[in-house]
């Protein structure tokens, strides 16, 4: 369910980066974010984690009514694309469709002065306002890999293999 909404999440996560004069736009966006939407025949909604991101942004920035309407329109376009494809899992979309959705997300972000880019190294979508990094959305929905390789084991294995190779070669030459 969360994967399906990733396209929306990217846009929704950029809502609040523009200062404006009306808190009503914020309320409109928050209401929209808390709604469920029909995608490929199923009612889908954002996760609590996604809502937390949006609330954080709306707590520190305001969005005009006009900007809220434009952003919601882009979200609706993304939902329309997903419904057109009839796919609930974003990962199952073709590369072209993924690019189409990401393009719409970037347009929505631009409305509020935010740029989105894909960080290959960390496999996440990164949002910037000017040169300030605001947030990042991981494309990996699971808990992070927080283990570390045993450096000593690696070193021992490499040395053992090198030592073995040396011994074998020496035997061959001396034979």
């Amino acid at each position: 369910m969360k994967k399906v909404m990733q396209g929306m999440l990217v846009m929704l996560a950029t809502f609040t980066f523009v200062t404006s004069v009306s808190a009503k736009g914020n309320d409109t966006l928050l209401t929209y974010a808390n709604q469920s939407h029909k995608i490929a025949g199923e009612n889908v909604s954002l996760s609590n984690g996604d809502i937390a991101k949006i609330e954080r942004f709306l707590n520190s920035n305001e969005v005009t009514d006009e900007q809220a309407s434009d952003i919601i329109a882009k979200c609706d376009e993304i939902i329309a694309v997903l419904n057109r494809e009839g796919v609930k899992d974003v990962t199952k979309l073709s590369k072209n469709v993924k690019n189409e959705i990401f393009g719409l997300a970037k347009e929505a972000a631009n409305i509020v002065g935010v740029t989105l880019s894909y960080d290959k190294a960390n496999k996440e979508i990164v949002a910037y306002k000017g040169d300030k990094k605001i947030d990042a959305i991981s494309l990996n929905p699971y808990l992070k890999q927080t283990g570390t390789a045993n450096v000593l084991a690696i070193t021992m294995s490499v040395v053992a293999i090198l030592g073995t190779g040396t011994l074998v070669l020496r035997k061959r030459f001396n034979a």
């Binding site: 996760s47 984690g49 954080r56 190294a121 960390n122 947030d135 990042a136 992070k144 890999q145």
Partner: peptide, 18 residues
């Protein structure tokens, strides 16, 4: 933040939480 590059430096805080 909780990017892998951040975790190299200390404790990461998931931006999907409060």
């Amino acid at each position: 933040g909780d990017s892998m590059s951040i975790l190299k430096h200390g404790i990461g805080h998931s931006s999907s939480s409060y």
